[in-house]
Every structure is written in C-alpha cells, then in structure tokens.
C-alpha cells in the first residue's frame, strides 16, 4: 500500500521543501521505497535541496504531457538508492498541472511499489497547492511559531478537510500532523515567539515534532544534502525523530525546552 503524504503550510518560507527532503530521505534510509515530488512548478527548489539539480532531464510537466515516461523523469538519489525525486518544471507555471495527470503519476508510483510518496506543496492555496494535497492520505502541516504562519496553516487544514479527494468521496479524512519548525525556546521564554502549547491550542492538532532553529539547515540546503543526513545537528536529529514517530516508534519530544548550560545541569535550574 502506497501512503501519500503532503507537506503543506499555506505560508511560504516556513520549511516545506527542507521538511519534504528530510522526511523522504528518512523513510528511504529506513528501507522504504520513497518518491518525493516537487509541485512548485515555476519555482523549482527541491532538486537543489536534494543535490540533484545537475541531473534533471525531464520533469513532472513532461510526464503529464506525455513527453517523457515516469521512469525517465524520476531521479535516483545519490545517497540512498531507495529514494527517487520527481522534479518540477522551471519554465512552466502551475496551470500546466492537471488533476488527471497528477492522479495518473500517483497511480503509476503505486504500481511500482513505492511505499511512501512525499508531495512537496508550493506556498499559497492555489492550483499547485491544491493538486499537491488533493490525493493525500496524510498531511504534514509545517508551521512556524508566529501568528501569520499559524493562521495560514489553519486555513490550509480547512482546505484539506473540505477539498481533498478523501473529503469529496466521503472517505476517512486525511490524517493531519503538526510540524513546528524554526522553534527557539529562548525566544519563547522572552515572549518573542509562540510556544508549542500556544500553537497546539490554536490548531488542536497532533504534534509530530518540533524542529529547532538551526544553522545546520541553511548549511545543508546550500550543500544539497537533506539535513537529516547531518546526524550531529539538532535539526537532523529532530527530523529523524519525526520519521521514527510517524512510523510508529515511541520517541519523547525534544528541543521544546531550553538547552541547559553546564551551570544549569549541575544545579538543575531552568
């Protein structure tokens, strides 16, 4: 059974593509055959984060228009052979995508025994975002701890529960998970940022994990290595926890509390 996961947020710049790349790599590292699809037609980024930009020949629009087969367009990842990337087109716009075309690609991936298909949604609630989430079974809602991002996520959750295939056909609703990214406990303490509890209170959503604000994310993006491969970094570990939790492992939440300094550790103060 193929599980289709959409990584979505509504708002831009919150970490959808970073998250898509990290979790897709996480699933593949655990031995699951995984595909990650970039739906951001016109603003192609996923290939850069995955470090495969120099190997792109065909893209999702070529496949939809029958100019290439899915096999020709799928790029096998260099680090993990269970992972495949379907890039977006940079020269077209979102109208080049069609619901039938996307449905056909997902059916074909299911026929090829992919276990997980990660759909990297573009920002906004227009066609690209709509098609990215339409066929989803699970939704990873990526949210930054600030009010605008939280409201946009809330809007996106409304669309997930009313305009998806599962909603239209009256099936079991999409499972929704909250991923809180760019979290900084220090800034929460001084009141500059919403806390995990605040966000959960507003969104009332199952928290899959908190990813701390981390320099390693930018470093990873620039080097074309999904941050989950950087096992020493806090963000990499946070994504590894998320993948494990999603697959059913019981992992306690980390990165919610402030790191205790050496002094704090000795005296147990917070």
């Amino acid at each position: 059974m193929t599980r289709i996961i959409v990584v979505t947020s509504g708002k831009g710049g919150v970490g959808k593509t970073t998250t898509s790349a990290a979790i897709a790599m996480g699933f593949a590292q655990k031995g699951h055959k995984t595909a990650v699809i970039d739906f951001d037609v016109g603003l192609r980024n996923l290939d850069l984060i995955m470090g495969c930009e120099r190997r792109v020949v065909y893209d999702i629009v070529n496949v939809i228009y029958g100019e290439a087969t899915l096999n020709q367009a799928l790029i096998r990842d260099k680090h993990c052979e269970q992972l495949y990337i379907l890039p977006a087109s940079q020269t077209r716009d979102k109208d080049a995508l069609s619901q039938e075309g996307v449905g056909q690609i997902l059916e074909e991936l299911a026929a090829k025994d992919f276990e997980y298909v990660v759909c990297d949604s573009p920002a906004g609630i227009e066609k690209g975002a709509h098609l990215a989430m339409y066929f989803a079974d699970d939704a990873f809602v990526v949210t930054n701890p600030e009010v605008a991002s939280v409201r946009d996520s809330d809007r996106m959750l409304g669309i997930l529960s009313s305009k998806s295939r599962r909603a239209e056909q009256g099936l079991e609703p999409i499972k929704e998970y909250l991923l809180l990214t760019r979290y900084s406990p220090e800034r929460v303490r001084i009141g500059e940022m919403l806390s995990v509890a605040d966000v959960q209170d507003i969104l009332s959503l199952h928290l899959l994990g908190v990813i701390p604000e981390s320099k390693s994310v930018l470093t990873a993006s620039n080097s074309g290595m999904p941050v989950i491969l950087d096992e020493k970094s806090d963000a990499g570990q946070a994504y590894a926890d998320i993948v494990a939790r999603y697959l059913g492992e019981d992992k306690p939440h980390r990165f919610i509390e402030e790191k205790k300094g050496l002094f704090g550790k000795f005296f147990g103060s917070k």
């Binding site: 409201r151 946009d152 809330d154 809007r155 959750l157 409304g158 669309i159 529960s161 009313s162």
Partner: peptide, 8 residues
C-alpha cells in the same frame, strides 16, 4: 465535531 478552520 471537527475543528472549524480559518476560511470555513
């Protein structure tokens, strides 16, 4: 019984 989201 389900949350009513922004925009709904």
């Amino acid at each position: 019984t389900r949350p009513i989201r922004s925009g709904q």
